[in-house]
Design a protein around this nucleic acid. Structure first.
Length: 975
RNA sequence: CCAGGAAAAGCUCAGAUGGCAGAGCACUCGACCGAUAAUCGAGCGGCCGCUGGUUCGACUCCAGCUUCCUGGACCA
């Protein structure tokens, strides 16, 4: 040991640990520079320099926006994620399966919040000893991208092949996958970023196609009709996003349907009358597709007699209707509840067809007659209610919008309509109705009407052939409901939420008339339209996808894809066409567990946990559950965690248009990702959470406090080598033991909270501990012992031993939350490997070496702290009275009796340090109250430790300092 | 309109089984000047969303309502 080590107490006893990176200056490196300080002249001691002040290169200012990217670069270079995998190989697996965000746009607060939470889960499980891999993924197919690419391609698209368009979509998705990947990595989320899963990967596409074949093979899939927005000019189905609304004038008409069933069944008063249903519609051309008349079961209806005929109209709409239709002598024959019309049979005015009376809640009194013309082939709700009543989805309009004689409903369409478009059909239908005596009135109506966003022509609702997964085939719905019960839902109400959705949802329409996705691999016989769904034929195509991506479906002809010489089982035909529809993107992402939780990723099925926002109950949680239940017989996740929505400071949803959206990248640029992570840790994530400038300011303050807590520990541990300098626990000062036992309790609680994903409790408890226990009490009390004792004195070593254990535990306890800062601290502790390879502290680490006697003594210290609180209040009063300034100027006179006296007497020697005063005097009192008096301390102020003592100058060599200080200085100067 | 959720100090959160509303931060005032763009102390601050009910007693249990959030339905 050279002499320089004696003047600077904070010198290390060992060689500096190797620098891990130029980006971080370790304390060891700093101390190496201090070592060149010239030796102190024993004759000319500068007292100030004999104080062991904290020394650390761990800066007070974090500079996170600059420091974090360097840390990320190091993690990347070290291949940290791979190292973590290797370090946990063979450990029990814990798998969080990532829900794929859509590869469009940059990340926002919601996605950042979700990803950080996932990182908390993965890191905390890793540190708890699990092997917890994280494979991020992206959802790459689908309409939003195809629409964007469409608009970028413009008119060029018309000359492009499907494969070319798909390549453009792929490029677009790749671009955003890359941008989002950078954004997510910047958050400090560790994972398999270099090889994520993408739904557009060939292998993944193959899994999707395979899942479809499995569903088909298991008998869940059927082909049915469903109305969709249809542009007859572009001959295409339109998604919701492709429809825009504009004013349009339609002929609105009132049409009567004669009642064929017994009128008395509706109301006895109607017996013998000629009764009519009376409907109102703005789409006369859909009259040929009429299958039913819907009444609202909750409304009262009136039977109104006009000129010998009786019309059934909602009671509240009788007068309006009379006015519109020019009724003069009308009177009400009967009133009855709408429910009575159920089962009534009307006759179609133009066709040889019955139209049933049905009940539907969507019938309103805003317009019309309270009786709604129902054509399931031409309206969403008509379709839904039609399904309920088992009414055929009949649609006599082809892709060009022209009438034809469709199958599926009785009645022969009039020749006048055949081949005409629906727009040409309107006046023809009017004319036919007039001739039939069924047209009761007509007027023009200007209203908002859906138009095609591309050609701006009005669109129609038209039933088209779609592929469905039947919810009630093979007990599918019930199986899914049963599977839900096996999942642990957090929060618990998630179970009810998703159960309600599954119970009420219609069949899953899995087909889309689009290009950017995974094709539905089915062929049709050109001769008889019989579909080819034999898996022996389809499985090889699934295999082809894995090799060439789903593009092969578009690159090769049906003949090339089918086995040579394949013939239609039904008609023997040899010519086949490919299905042109693709699968719903929810089918893609819902299959992610099949694509990712498998051997090629080394992951087991099912996953331990899914964690997403509340919108996913109808999204990914839902579709994944259906795919899992259908193909594997159970849920693909054991637990399902919900994260709430990120709202603004007022609790309002964030919207770009409102200007209240907070951009995570801005926060990172201004404050650093650890602030964002700390915010994520601070809130109860199952609920909706708030983010605002105020909240951020609070978090920045909290971060500083945590950082300074680490800084204090690092600074006071400079030169401390636990291997050689640590004090055995049972020899440590009682205060230090007490603190370690409190920390032990904190670690126990935090680990339980981590197990239960209660990150905010960890944050709040650790933060409160740092503030209340450490900073305000322990660190404050410790300063005298650390700064003024001789560097190697037992008291100082005891404190350092405690600090070391605390630091070592806290840095790991917070590593999942403040990943960057924890790593920075870890580096300053001289650790060679990343903190993210470490394990959580065990409670026993803190209290190692402490026996039951020490545990029992904590009760003493708890009570001493109560006394301290009282004394501090009195010191404050004395300070306000200008009796004292610094607490060391005080002498405290205590009076107590009974047990308290005994306790205080037992700890009399510790009290001045505990109260941070110069002297404490204890008297036995008569009454039970604690007596506290404050006066000025006696004696002179020691220049070195600032305490007032009677022995200042006791050492003639150092006339301005007290005897203990003189001893310490001697030790420092002479060793 | 339907399903589900939330409401506590300016902010973030504790508040099993009903028993005088808690913490930290912020704010105000003060101290220190050896954690210093730090640290310590004290003080201020609440109709526990509203209205009823049960109870000796309700932030807590029950009913209704209001506002906000998510998804859906409607508009089409």
């Amino acid at each position: 040991m050279n002499s320089t080590s004696r003047i600077v107490p904070a010198l290390p006893r060992r060689e500096s640990p190797p620098l891990r990176t130029p980006a971080v200056t370790t304390d060891a490196a700093l101390l190496a520079t201090i070592r060149v300080t010239p030796p102190m002249d024993p004759q000319n001691v500068v007292l100030k320099q004999t104080i062991n002040l904290p020394t650390t290169a761990f800066s007070m200012k974090a500079n996170l926006p600059q420091a974090e990217p360097k840390m990320l670069a190091r993690w990347e270079e070290e291949k940290l994620y791979r190292k973590i995998r290797a370090s946990r190989a063979g450990r029990p697996l814990y798998v969080l399966h990532d829900g794929p965000p859509y590869a469009n746009g940059r990340i926002h607060m919601g996605t950042a919040f979700n990803k950080i939470l996932k990182d908390f889960v993965v890191k905390s499980k890793t540190m708890a000893g699990f092997d917890s891999p994280y494979v991020p993924g992206w959802d790459c197919h689908g309409l939003p991208i195809e629409i964007k690419v469409d608009s970028e391609l413009g008119s060029k698209k018309a000359h492009m092949t499907a494969v070319q368009i798909r390549r453009a979509c792929r490029q677009y998705a790749e671009k955003y996958v890359e941008l989002q990947r950078q954004d997510f990595k910047r958050l400090g989320v560790l994972g398999r970023w270099e090889d994520p899963y993408l739904t557009m990967n060939a292998k993944y596409q193959s899994v999707i196609a395979g899942a479809f074949v499995d569903f088909l093979d298991k008998g869940y899939v059927y082909k049915g009709l469903k109305p969709v927005h249809w542009c007859i000019k572009d001959r295409t189905a339109l998604a919701e996003a492709e429809v825009e609304y504009a004013d349009h004038t339609s002929p609105s008409i009132w049409v009567r349907f004669s009642l064929a069933s017994d009128p008395a069944a509706i109301d006895p008063a109607l017996a013998g009358h000629q009764v009519f249903g009376l409907i109102w519609t703005t789409t006369p051309w859909t009259i040929p597709a009429n299958m039913a008349i819907a009444y609202n079961p909750r409304y009262q209806y009136a039977a109104v007699e006009v000129a010998g005929a009786v019309y059934l109209v909602a009671a509240d709409l009788v007068e309006v209707t009379a006015q519109k239709l020019g009724w003069h002598d009308h009177h009400t024959v009967a009133t009855f509840p709408g429910a009575r019309t159920e089962g009534a049979v009307f006759r179609h005015p133009l066709l040889d067809r019955d139209s049933q009376g049905i009940l539907a809640d969507h019938v309103t009194l805003e317009q019309g007659t309270g009786a709604v013309h129902t054509a399931p082939g031409h309206g969403q709700e008509d379709y839904t209610v039609g399904q309920k009543y088992g009414i055929a989805t009949y649609c006599p309009v082809d892709a060009a919008g022209r009438f034809f004689r469709a199958e599926g409903a009785p009645g022969y369409l009039p020749d006048a309509l055949i081949g005409k478009t629906v727009w040409e059909g309107n006046p023809i239908v009017l004319e036919l109705l007039q001739e039939a005596g069924a047209l009761m009135g007509m007027e023009k109506l200007a209203h908002s009407y859906p138009h095609c966003w591309r050609c701006h022509h009005p669109v129609i609702f038209r039933a088209t052939e779609q592929w469905f997964i039947g919810m009630d085939l093979n007990h599918f719905r019930q199986d899914a409901l049963d599977a839900i019960k096996q999942v642990k839902w957090m929060p618990e109400w998630g179970q009810e939420r998703i159960s309600n959705m599954i119970a009420a949802r219609p069949d899953w329409c899995i087909s889309r008339q689009r290009v950017w996705g995974v094709p539905i691999i089915v062929f049709y016989c050109e001769g008889c339209r019989e579909p080819v769904t034999d898996r022996k034929i389809l499985d090889p195509i699934v295999a082809l996808f894995a090799e060439h991506s789903a593009d092969v479906w578009y690159e090769r002809t049906a003949a090339e894809l089918l086995p040579a010489g394949h013939t239609c089982a039904k008609c023997g035909g040899t010519e086949f066409a490919k299905e042109t529809d693709i699968l719903d993107v929810w089918f893609d992402s819902g299959s992610s567990h099949l694509a990712v939780l498998n051997e090629s990723f080394g992951l087991p099925w099912p996953a331990d946990v899914y964690l997403e926002g509340g919108d996913q109950y109808r999204g990914w949680f839902h579709s994944s559950l259906l795919v899992g239940t259908g193909l594997r017989g159970s849920s693909p996740y054991r637990a399902c965690l919900l994260n709430g929505w990120v709202l603004d400071g007022e609790g309002k949803a964030m919207h770009k248009s409102l200007g209240n959206a907070v951009d995570p990248n801005t926060i990172i640029k201004d404050h650093g990702a650890d602030i964002l992570r700390l915010w994520t840790a601070s809130v109860e994530f199952h609920e909706d959470v708030r983010m605002s400038a105020t909240i951020l300011t609070r978090l920045v303050d909290a971060y500083r406090k945590l950082r300074n807590t680490f800084r204090y520990m690092l600074g006071n541990l400079a030169g401390f080598d636990p291997a050689t300098d640590a004090v055995p626990a049972r020899e440590m000062a009682e205060l230090d033991q007490w603190m370690l036992l409190r920390a032990e309790d904190l670690v126990t609680r935090c680990r339980a909270w981590y197990d239960n994903f209660e990150f905010h409790k960890v944050y709040h408890a650790v933060y409160a501990f740092c503030t209340v226990d450490l900073s305000a009490v322990y660190f404050d009390v410790l300063k005298d012992r650390l700064y003024t004792s001789a560097p190697k004195s037992p008291g100082r070593r005891s404190a350092q031993t405690a600090l070391y254990r605390l630091l070592d535990a806290f840095v790991r306890l917070l590593a999942p939350l403040m990943s960057f800062t924890a790593e920075e601290v870890w580096g300053h502790m001289g650790r060679a490997e990343s903190v993210h390879l470490a394990y959580f502290p065990e409670p026993a680490e803190l209290a190692a070496g402490l026996d039951d006697a020490a545990r029992k003594r904590t009760a003493n210290w708890d009570r001493l702290m109560e006394v301290r609180d009282v004394v501090l209040k009195h010191l404050d009063t004395a300070r306000n009275q200008k009796l004292i300034g610094a607490p060391l100027e005080a002498r405290v006179l205590l009076s107590a009796n009974g047990e308290r006296y005994t306790l205080l007497q037992q700890y009399a020697a510790e009290l001045p340090a505990l109260f941070i005063v110069s002297q404490v005097e204890l008297d036995r009192a008569e009454d039970a109250d604690l007596g506290v008096k404050v006066e000025r301390a006696a004696g002179a102020k020691c220049e070195r430790c600032w305490k007032y003592t009677l022995d200042v100058g006791g050492d003639p060599g150092f006339p301005t300092i007290c005897l203990p200080c003189a001893g310490a200085v001697h030790e420092i100067v002479h060793g």
